[in-house]
Design a protein around this nucleic acid. Sequence first.
DNA 1: CTAAATGGTTGTATAGTACACATAATAAAT
DNA 2: ATTTATTATGTGTACTATACAACCATTTAG
Lengths: 143, 143
Amino acid sequence: MNDETIAGIEKEITSFIRRIILSEKRMDGLDRSTYVILRQLASHGPAGVKKLSDDLQLDSSTISRQAAALVQKNYAVKEPNPADGRSYFYQITDTGKKELEANRERRYGRLRYMLSEWPEEDRKIFGELLRRYNEGVEDMNDQ
Amino acid sequence: MNDETIAGIEKEITSFIRRIILSEKRMDGLDRSTYVILRQLASHGPAGVKKLSDDLQLDSSTISRQAAALVQKNYAVKEPNPADGRSYFYQITDTGKKELEANRERRYGRLRYMLSEWPEEDRKIFGELLRRYNEGVEDMNDQ
DNA sequence: CTAAATGGTTGTATAGTACACATAATAAAT
DNA sequence: ATTTATTATGTGTACTATACAACCATTTAG
């Protein structure tokens, strides 16, 4: 395997992360973690702290507080699980959906702009390689 | 432009960032910011708080504290700038270099492992697309 | 020579996170 | 059926990374 390629990728990945985090901080709207939880609730349906913390790989205390913040902002409601007195379901509200959608659009907009000069073929490949990379990291983390 | 492609990329990018940050937290060794500063000192030579904060796009107070931590750990030394009594140069030490190198190797190792099944061609393309993407974000941020 | 700008530090604040512990509820074991 | 273990959640505490504002010392400009 070519070592220069690895070095290049490593360098680009660190920039990539720094830049994105930076540019997100400047963007108004939901912060990353709120966005991620909200997106999870929207795409995978209501879930409790446990499930979210498993799926998002965050400590349950973290999720617990963040979920409470979502409720606080009326982005989600918390309902008891009728089948288990210990647990709850957080469900995204219409406000939450709207907020999520607005944010998603902002994110998409930035992406679209950034990729506007790219050939569609390259965009496809980029998405595909990222996906494959993520798969790899996931497997590695799960070991 | 195909909206599904955008949506896919957006989703993969958020995973990408979450996973990497996660997996870095598990890794022992330097944390991201220390690594980034140290790498900067190694590759661009001695620099003061101002320069580092410009280059890395972090607040000078942040750099100031982190640089102090580097000195504390003997990864860098702080020397007055003979030409300007207000400013200093942080210079990476041998210990710092060794630490940086060890970390870099760990990072490369993980990467190599993760990309070991990829065709070299795809690795090249991945690096190239990341680079191009970063260029785009940089331009956008600088606006 | 005084006034403005600059490089750096420190005080304070916030977000995001984890770990350890507490509590309540369910499930398992005897 | 009663005790014990496990589980889902929440809270106290702590740490890291970060920014902004206020400040000091020094340099540069008018």
